[in-house]
């Protein structure tokens, strides 16, 4: 352990902070863990659902980040780098834990008549989506609806539409075929639409 000479760690930019971490500065480690544990916990909890697993994944993520400090590239953001490592740690955890039986997604999907027409008549949503989503209450509502999706569908939606992995990356991360990723993503989006619609559509006359 080295004495933390120089300016206080809290005032350092990412490059300088990583330099302190590489030098083994305890104060810098504590600052990084204290600053980022909350938001990394939010990321891993989103993917894993369980609080306990999310905490384990955050711990794994920090340890893995600290082991690979030499791979942090100057010019990138520490927050982005840690975020990516936390997503990977959560996926690793997801692959190794025993899968719990999950609710079927079919009840959340559209229903068709025998002739292949929709059973439901869709009424338009009451305001543009970017306007609706500029309000925190709607962002929280959408996150809560995503949480309601069965796990194997929720994970795909998060990886593809939120974390913006492409189909092949998501397939590799989850150990399933690219085609399975596409099928699940399409179902997950349709199920989410069904969950969001009651909140966003215009009031019926």
């Amino acid at each position: 352990m080295q004495a933390s000479a120089g300016p206080p760690v809290a005032s350092l930019d990412d490059g300088a902070l990583v330099a302190r971490l590489r030098a083994g500065d305890e104060e810098a480690f504590e600052l990084v863990v204290r600053t980022y544990s909350g938001r990394l916990l939010a990321v891993t909890r989103r993917i894993l659902g369980s609080d306990e697993d999310a905490r384990d994944a955050v711990q794994d993520a920090f340890l893995s980040a600290f082991r690979s400090l030499e791979r942090f590239e100057g010019g990138s953001l520490l927050s982005t780098w840690l975020h990516r490592i936390a997503v990977n740690a959560a996926l690793m955890k997801l692959r190794t834990r025993r899968r719990k039986p999950e609710d079927p997604i079919e009840p959340l999907l559209p229903v068709y008549q025998e002739n292949g027409h929709h059973q439901e008549t869709f009424s338009s949503w009451n305001e543009p989506v970017d306007v609706a989503m500029s309000r925190a209450e709607n962002r929280a509502r959408v996150r809560a609806c995503i949480e309601q999706l069965p796990e194997s569908y929720r994970t795909i939606l998060l990886l593809r539409d939120i974390e913006e992995l492409d189909t092949d990356e998501a397939a590799r991360a989850l150990g399933i075929s690219p085609n399975a990723v596409k099928i699940r993503l399409h179902r997950a989006r349709q199920a989410l639409r069904g969950l969001l619609a009651p909140h966003f559509r215009s009031a019926q006359p």
């Binding site: 504590e30 863990v33 204290r34 544990s37 909350g38 938001r39 916990l41 939010a42 989103r46 905490r55 955050v58 711990q59 920090f62 340890l63 949503w125 989506v129 970017d130 609706a132 989503m133 925190a136 709607n138 962002r139 929280a140 959408v142 996150r143 995503i146 939606l157 539409d161 939120i162 989006r189 989410l192 639409r193 969001l196 966003f200």
Partner: peptide
């Protein structure tokens, strides 16, 4: 709209972060 709403739901990461630093987790790490 659903795809867009999903994307926009996570644009403000601070909203999901617990107000208090999870002390026990910090100590464990």
């Amino acid at each position: 709209h659903t795809i867009e709403a999903g994307r926009l739901a996570f644009t403000n990461p601070e909203e999901e972060v617990p107000a208090d630093v999870p002390e026990d987790l910090v100590k464990a790490v």
